[in-house]
């Protein structure tokens, strides 16, 4: 799979390049600022772009803005945003239109190599990867009525779902059987008045739509 990397720190750019190449991805471009990222995406049409939030010239949210442009102009290009801090607001912007092929992870997560590469792979193939911190922040903001109906276990499952994990992944994480997870998920959908959906990203979309306080889909 072909990847574009946008990261302003030279050290990390080289490190990330090495990391994803080791995992069998092809890095077609590695750039240091948002303008370069957009140019590279336009030229190479990669499968995914790994984007740092803070980049020149303003060192604030250039990366997020560039990511939003990519999502709008080249929807087929997946975007994995890396941030030094997880900010719910950035995540909400990213996820506003569509949750397929998008990820938002703390930069620290690159240290957990296999977790990070899993996330990248998931995003590049049209899935979602959200940092657990993003999820907890999103949940915090919507901790109003319907969620309070969930049991702690169901809440846990919901958080893992929102991170973009599959049923099998959730089962593994919680050390329960797949069928138990499926049951929890059905309960969640029922309690939140969400219709059952098949694909992972549709599921996340439904969850996030709820999290953002909109009407349940």
């Amino acid at each position: 799979m072909r990847i574009v990397i946008a990261e302003d720190s030279v050290l990390l750019r080289a490190g990330l390049t090495k990391l994803v190449e080791t995992a069998g991805f092809e890095v077609v471009a590695a750039v240091g600022e948002a303008e370069g990222l957009l140019a590279a995406v336009e030229r190479h049409r990669p499968d995914a772009a790994i984007v740092d939030v803070r980049m020149p010239p303003g060192f604030t949210d250039e990366g997020i803005r560039a990511a939003l442009v990519i999502r709008r102009q080249w929807p087929e290009v997946a975007v994995l945003v890396l941030s030094q801090y997880v900010e719910e607001r950035y995540a909400a912007d990213l996820l506003a239109t569509n949750t397929s092929g998008v990820g938002y992870l703390l930069k620290d997560r690159v240290a957990d190599v296999s977790v990070f590469l899993d996330g990248l792979r998931r995003v590049a193939t049209g899935g979602t990867a959200l940092d657990p911190e993003v999820v907890s922040q999103l949940l915090l903001r919507r901790n109003s009525h319907p969620l309070e109906r969930l049991t702690p276990r169901e809440r846990e499952v919901l958080e893992l779902m929102a991170e973009g994990r599959s049923n099998a992944g959730i089962a593994e994480k919680l050390v329960v059987s797949d069928s138990a997870v499926a049951k929890h998920i059905n309960n969640i959908f029922a309690k939140l008045d969400l219709p059952h959906a098949e694909a992972d990203h549709r599921r996340v979309l439904a969850v996030l739509r709820f999290l953002r306080g909109g009407d349940p889909a």
Binding site: R54, D61, E87, L140, R141
Partner: peptide, 18 residues
Amino acid sequence: PAVLEDRGLDAALSGVAA
């Protein structure tokens, strides 16, 4: 927090609260 500058108190505080 950088987000305080970009997006204001609401965004920054929701991060703290989380």
